[in-house]
Structure formats: structure tokens, C-alpha cells
Computed example of a mutant assay.
Amino acid sequence: MFTGIIEGTVNLKKISKNKNNFSYIFSCKLPVKKKDIGTSISINGVCLTLVKFSKKKRNNDLYFDISPETLKITNLINSKVGDFFNIEKSLKFGDEIAGHFVQGHVDDIGKIKSFIKIKNSWQIWIQIKSKFKKFLITKGSVSVNGISLTINNIKNNMFRVDIIPHTFNKTNLNKLKKNSTVNIEYDLLIKFLKQNVK
């Protein structure tokens, strides 16, 4: 479980294939310890298991095994060496809940339809699959590449989020543009209500 409050970005260093799975290696400034091996870490909103790490002079290399199914349902399939990804360690007992509950289970891949700077903020319209529109609620929460954001407007099968400078500078949103793909996870509570309340 995560909160959608991004701790920083990591750089994709290497992709390798081992039988049916893939290994992704990310270069990261985030401190990690031996006890972190086997724990869940969110990479672009995808819950992955840290299988090992190696310490370098300035950064740590983080190793994750990724299945073909995970690649199929997330934007990791479009990733290239050198790309930047958002990272967040899993929630621990006593941590502050500053965003919203994010599972790291991606529901959809959205496409950025417009990316406009307005004064000191950015307005982003994201297109999703029509079948997921029922999970959109104005002023509700949504996870975009693992970032906890507020839905400020909805039109057809698109929604708008507004990005403040802190979020823009701390996440990989500053690397994206029109037609970029993003991982979407809809609010857990909204999904529960829509699926269980008649």
C-alpha cells in the first residue's frame, strides 16, 4: 500500500530478459537497506518487489523482476533505458497519510491529450478507456504514474488534473508531453462503492 506522495525519480539503467520474465535496473538516490529486499516499492504507480540492490558512489542500483503480464497492463512496456520513473516506498505503520490509499495495481493506461502551462501551474487532460469513466468523480482522487492527484474536471472519457510546481519538479511529469502514456489507478474507495452499491 502507498500514498501517492512521490519520494523522487529513478533512472532506468538496464533492461534484461531472463526466460519469460524481465529484469529492470533503476539508478536511484533514495537510500535503501538490506531489510528493504523483498519489500514492495512503487515504480510509476506499479507495485514491484525489490529483489536486490547494489551501492554505487552516488546512487544505488535497484533490481526488479517484471512479468510479461505487468508489462502488458502498464506503461513499463514502452520504457527505454534513460527514462525517468516515479518512486515511492510502501506505507509503514505510523506514516502520515498525505495523499490517498494507492495499491500499486494499475487499472488503465491513459494518454495525455493536452499539457498546458497556466501561470505557475500545469493543466493536464488525460484520456482513459470509456469503461472506466464510472470511477471518475470531480474532486475525487486518482493515481497518475503513482502520483496522488485530484480530478478537477471531467469531459466524456477524459479528466483534468492541475499540477503545482512542487509536484511538477519532483516527479517525472516534467518529462512528459502530449500523447505520452501514464499509468492510472482509480480510487480504491470509489471502485468499491461502484462495484458493490446498487
Rank of each mutant, 00 (worst) to 15 (best):
I112M: 07
N157P: 04
S121I: 01
T181W: 10
F168V: 05
K134V: 15
F135Y: 15
F135R: 08
E185D: 12
P165D: 02
I126V: 15
F115S: 09
F132A: 12
N172G: 01
F159Y: 14
N152R: 01
I147A: 05
N145S: 08
I184N: 10
L149A: 02
I137C: 01
V182A: 14
F115D: 08
S130H: 05
I124L: 13
K119T: 13
N120T: 03
K119R: 12
L188F: 14
T181K: 15
K117S: 06
H105D: 03
I164C: 08
N169Y: 15
R160A: 03
V106D: 01
N169P: 11
S114A: 06
K113V: 12
S130R: 09
S130F: 08
D107H: 07
Y186E: 08
H105P: 02
K194Y: 13
Q123R: 14
F168D: 09
N156C: 05
I128G: 11
I151Q: 00
D108V: 06
I118L: 12
F192N: 07
N145L: 01
I163V: 15
S141H: 06
S141T: 03
Q195W: 07
I118V: 10
K113Q: 09
F115G: 06
L176S: 05
N183L: 05
I151G: 00
S180A: 07
D162E: 14
N174F: 06
D187Y: 13
L136V: 04
S143T: 11
N156R: 11
K191V: 11
K194L: 14
N152A: 00
K133Y: 07
T150Q: 01
N183Q: 08
E185M: 02
I184D: 07
M158T: 11
D162M: 09
P165C: 04
N153D: 13
N169C: 12
K119W: 01
G110W: 02
I154K: 07
I154G: 00
M158V: 03
I124W: 12
D108E: 10
S141N: 12
F135D: 07
L188V: 11
T150I: 02
K175E: 15
G140V: 03
I164A: 03
I109Y: 03
N179I: 09
I124E: 14
N179R: 12
Q123E: 15
